[in-house]
């Protein structure tokens, strides 16, 4: 592939060196648990606060919602997937930019690692973070009785896929950001609109007709849809399409992410 030819470090066909991937993942894990007292607030406490506020608070106002027994049940998978998105996206945008800016990637690239393996390790870590927040918030929701534990296990599937979709997407920002403030766009352009308009807080069907297809095309929507399928035990074909849509995005986003990162790091 021409993408690989531009770089003397790797080709898509060459074997993946798994040590590179585990090495990067281990670096993230080591750093993360050093600060676990801080990081847990984002993994568990912040989304749990949102869950309780919205589930209890707004739930009081909502008498009936399409496709769930209560508003709390409706909103639980949405908030969990939103949190999974935030973690993955933040990891490969803000944190990856920090690693570019402080030559941490450069140091890693002096070992026998390729840029593709670097993104593999980072995305593996982004997925780990999506899973950590999904497991902890879902466990909390199970305790509240808003989701049953078997459905919660099913939600891990869209959590992994979101980790990969947003983990690869985050690199678009890290690799092109000229300065740190640029990364605010991650929130203003991606995370915040997606958080609110992906069917997390209200069914997409309440949106004006012309907005609906746009909302369905947004990258967080399939994750929320699939998670809700598991949460409300209403799995059908449309959830499979959501899964395939996410796989499609991953297959498109990943090569772009690698290309952009290579352009940024190897020059």
């Amino acid at each position: 592939m021409t993408l690989a030819a531009a770089d003397n470090r790797s080709s898509w066909t060459s074997a993946i060196r798994w040590r590179s991937v585990t090495g990067i993942w281990l670096r993230h894990w080591t750093s993360y648990i050093r600060y676990w007292k801080i990081t847990i607030t984002w993994v568990l406490i912040e989304p749990a606060v949102a869950l309780v506020a919205v589930g209890f608070g707004i739930g009081q106002l909502v008498v009936e919602v399409e496709g769930a027994n209560s508003y709390a049940e409706f909103v639980t998978p949405g908030i969990i997937m939103g949190s999974a998105m935030f973690h993955a996206l933040f990891e490969t945008s803000w944190n990856a930019y920090h690693r570019i800016d402080n030559q941490i990637y450069e140091t890693q690239l002096t070992t026998p690692i390729t840029v593709f393996e670097l993104t593999l390790g980072d995305v593996a870590w982004a997925v780990t973070r999506s899973l950590m927040t999904t497991v902890s918030v879902a466990a909390f929701a199970v305790a509240l009785g808003w989701i049953d534990q078997w459905s919660a296990v099913g939600i891990l599937i869209p959590a992994v896929l979101s980790g990969m979709v947003f983990g690869t997407m985050g690199f678009f920002f890290a690799a092109t950001a000229p300065y740190t403030v640029f990364l605010s766009l991650v929130f203003t352009l991606v995370a915040t609109p997606l958080y609110f308009f992906s069917g997390s807080f209200f069914p997409i069907s309440v949106l004006p007709d012309w907005v609906e297809p746009v909302a369905w095309a947004m990258p967080l929507t399939p994750a929320v849809h699939m998670a809700r399928g598991f949460a409300t035990n209403s799995l059908e074909f449309s959830h499979l399409w959501s899964g395939l849509y996410m796989v499609g995005m991953i297959l498109v986003f990943w090569p772009i992410a690698v290309w952009l990162m290579r352009r940024r790091l190897i020059k």
């Binding site: 040590r19 590179s20 090495g23 990067i24 281990l26 670096r27 080591t30 750093s31 050093r34 600060y35 402080n102 030559q103 941490i104 450069e106 140091t107 890693q108 070992t111 026998p112 690692i113």
Partner: peptide, 22 residues
Amino acid sequence: HDGHDSGLTVLQNLSLHGYLEG
């Protein structure tokens, strides 16, 4: 640039780099 990893201790910087090296 030194390119040290500010998220890690001095020892972790080295041992994780060594692990990445193989």
